[in-house]
Amino acid sequence: MAADLNAYLLVGAVLFVCGVVCMATKRNGIGVLMGVELVLNGANVNFVAFSRYTDLGLDGQVFSLFVIVLAAAEAAVALAIALNFYNNHLTIDVDRANKLKG
């Protein structure tokens, strides 16, 4: 497998899809968060790959840095929400967070 743009993109795609499936299948709220991290990471791989292999240049890396920072922020807030949810419901099962269902 050659280390070219498409190879990176495919890795990113796998990460992305894994993240999405993770989000779709994990009932544990933290698991869903991990899926989100995977998805973001897949996007990061793409950014870095474009930065490396096209004339996008530095901007891709800058973007991926921002993504990392925002992912950290997102993780902090989401975790706080998850903790709150756990405090109120004594479970972390996202399927039980359906009070607003139709």
Partner: peptide, 13 residues
């Protein structure tokens, strides 16, 4: 349409 709104995060994904 209500049944679509299951309230399940994962289904939305």
């Amino acid at each position: 349409l209500r049944v679509v709104q299951t309230g399940r995060l994962r289904q939305y994904v």
